[in-house]
Simulated assay, not measured.
Amino acid sequence: MWQPGGQHALKKQECALLVRSAVAVVCAVLGVGALSGCGDAKVVAEVGRGKVRQGEVELWRQEWSAGKRPTPEEALEGVVERELLAEEARRVGLEEEEGVRARLAAVRREVLARALVEKRMEEATGEGALRKRYEARKEALGRKQVHVRHILVRVPPEGDAQGRARAQSRINELYARLRGGEAFEKVAKEGSEDRVSGEKGGELGVVQEGQVDGGFFREAQGLKRGEVSKPFQTPYGLHLVQAVEEAQVVVPSFEEVRGKLAAEARREGEGRLVEELRESIGVKKYPERLRAVAAGGRKSEADAGEGK
Rank of each mutant, 00 (worst) to 15 (best):
L141R: 09
L35K: 12
R149H: 03
S192T: 00
R164D: 12
G271L: 00
R218F: 02
S36I: 00
E83D: 13
V32A: 13
P235I: 00
R225N: 09
R91K: 13
V29H: 11
E173S: 07
G205C: 01
G93N: 01
R120E: 12
G201N: 03
R90I: 03
A115N: 08
E14A: 15
G226R: 04
A247M: 04
G78V: 09
L204P: 03
Q208M: 04
L152M: 08
R195H: 11
L116G: 02
A75Y: 02
L261S: 05
H150N: 07
A161W: 04
W64C: 10
Q242R: 14
P4F: 07
E83I: 11
L273W: 15
W60R: 10
A292L: 13
E98W: 12
G215L: 06
R20Y: 02
V293H: 04
T234G: 04
V251A: 03
V43K: 09
L152D: 10
E275M: 10
I281V: 15
G191I: 08
Q248L: 11
R120Y: 12
F216G: 08
V187M: 04
G93S: 04
E256C: 05
A28W: 12
E14S: 06
D194V: 06
L30W: 03
Y134C: 09
V32G: 03
R82L: 15
G55C: 09
T234Y: 07
V26I: 04
A22P: 02
Y175H: 14
R114E: 13
L112S: 11
K230G: 10
Q242A: 05
Q62H: 10
L94K: 14
G210Q: 07
N172T: 13
V79D: 13
R20W: 06
R133A: 15
I171W: 01
Y236H: 14
A220H: 06
E203Q: 05
P287S: 11
E301K: 03
A41K: 06
E123C: 06
V117N: 01
S65C: 04
S253A: 10
F216N: 11
L116S: 07
A262M: 00
G215E: 06
R131D: 00
R53F: 12
E88L: 14
E306D: 11
L130P: 12
W2I: 06
G48P: 14
V52K: 01
D160E: 11
L112K: 09
R103A: 15
M1L: 12
R298Q: 09
E83Y: 12
R133L: 15
A129I: 02
V19R: 14
K224C: 01
V146F: 10
G210T: 08
D303W: 10
E276I: 00
E58M: 08
E288F: 10
D213F: 08
E209N: 13
E56H: 13
K200I: 04
G237M: 11
T125G: 07
E98H: 08
E227V: 08
G198L: 00
A247V: 04
G78I: 10
V250K: 15
G50F: 14
Q162W: 09
E158S: 12
L59Q: 15
H239N: 11
G198Q: 07
E96F: 05
V25E: 11
S192D: 03
G307P: 02
V111I: 02
E122W: 08
L84E: 15
G259L: 01
V249K: 01
V80T: 05
L76H: 03
L30A: 08
E98T: 09
K42C: 11
K284D: 01
E63H: 14
L178P: 09
K42R: 15
